[in-house]
């Protein structure tokens, strides 16, 4: 859909313990990692890169040496080069019955490389 856009691939290490997010009324926790950045045209861009459904408290300790990006990190234009961005880990707690809520933690101060990398035709 985007012929003239740029795309980024990140190497993310994720170490999270969401055991405390579980209570008797928790059906599942939807964990996701997103990138946030600002461009000249857009005051906010949010792109989810990876997500996972955690159904049991015993599986709530996540250790990933290299997160396999599930969704493409693409811009609406070509504004990713040399771009500052933040990464946020968020978890949406989904109940057996009742209210849904989301908690998150943001890590600031990342920067895209100043030069494009050629990864072949892909």
């Amino acid at each position: 859909m985007c012929g003239r856009c740029v795309q980024a691939k990140l190497h993310i290490v994720l170490d999270a313990d969401l055991k405390s997010a579980f209570s008797w009324n928790t059906k599942q926790v939807f964990l996701f990692v997103l990138a946030e950045y600002q461009t000249e045209t857009n005051q906010l861009n949010q792109v989810v890169l990876w997500d996972a459904i955690i159904q049991q408290q015993k599986d709530a300790k996540i250790r990933k040496k290299k997160l396999r990006q599930k969704y493409t990190f693409d811009d609406q234009g070509r504004n990713l080069r040399d771009r500052a961005f933040n990464l946020t880990v968020a978890w949406n707690v989904m109940p057996k019955v009742g209210r849904l809520f989301t908690r998150s933690q943001t890590f600031v101060g990342f920067n895209m490389p100043a030069n494009y990398t050629n990864i072949g035709r892909g």
């Binding site: 792109v47 989810v48 969704y71």
Partner: peptide, 10 residues
């Protein structure tokens, strides 16, 4: 469904 991308114009 769940929102996975947001682009908010300035």
């Amino acid at each position: 469904h769940r929102v996975i991308k947001v682009h908010e114009r300035a």
